[in-house]
């Protein structure tokens, strides 16, 4: 049943067995085309497997569905160094921590250090903090002079 497939999918997610996540997500989609959780699991597993082209294909395949995969797409575009395209996509998105991290990384690559620091400040206002974030802020300050 669909419930059994999702239980299997969940186990693979917990084990970070990314190839099996994709496989079982596809099995769900064969029974329930357009299932949002299955599509999100597939796209995230492909991104986490560094299969950026395949992730973009899965996002494209779902483009007619009422599911917003823009933040994933923006990340994939960033990985392909299509920075302005990624930024255009981000402008319309809710500023979740993931989106703010991505935005700051894009600005950094574009050499727009003031905007980069702005994004980091928004993350700190959301009480998002980590050693990695501190390292990136330091890098931006150094690069920004």
């Amino acid at each position: 049943s669909l419930e059994d497939l999702f239980a299997t999918l969940n186990r693979h997610v917990d084990n970070n067995d990314l190839a099996k996540v994709v496989k079982v997500a596809d099995q769900v989609l064969a029974i329930a085309p357009g299932d949002e959780d299955a599509i999100r699991c597939k796209v995230v597993a492909l991104i986490r497997s560094e299969a950026i082209d395949k992730a973009l294909n899965a996002i494209k395949a779902a483009s007619s569905l009422p599911i917003d995969l823009s933040s994933y797409k923006a990340y994939c575009l960033y990985r392909q160094n299509k920075l302005e395209e990624a930024l255009d996509l981000i402008r319309g998105l809710e500023k979740t921590p993931m989106v703010l991290h991505l935005e700051s990384q894009i600005f950094y690559r574009l050499g727009k250090m003031d905007s980069c620091i702005d994004s980091y400040e928004k993350l700190q206002k959301l009480k998002i903090d980590s050693d990695d974030l501190k390292a990136n802020i330091m890098a931006s300050l150094v690069a920004g002079g």
């Binding site: 997610v13 991104i47 330091m138």
Partner: peptide, 21 residues
């Protein structure tokens, strides 16, 4: 310039499947 860590990657999470099982 220094390499920025890809924190966005680490922030991409699987959806919760709790209510699907």
């Amino acid at each position: 310039s220094p390499i920025v860590l890809d924190i966005a990657y680490n922030s991409i999470e699987f959806p919760s499947l709790e209510n699907r099982m």
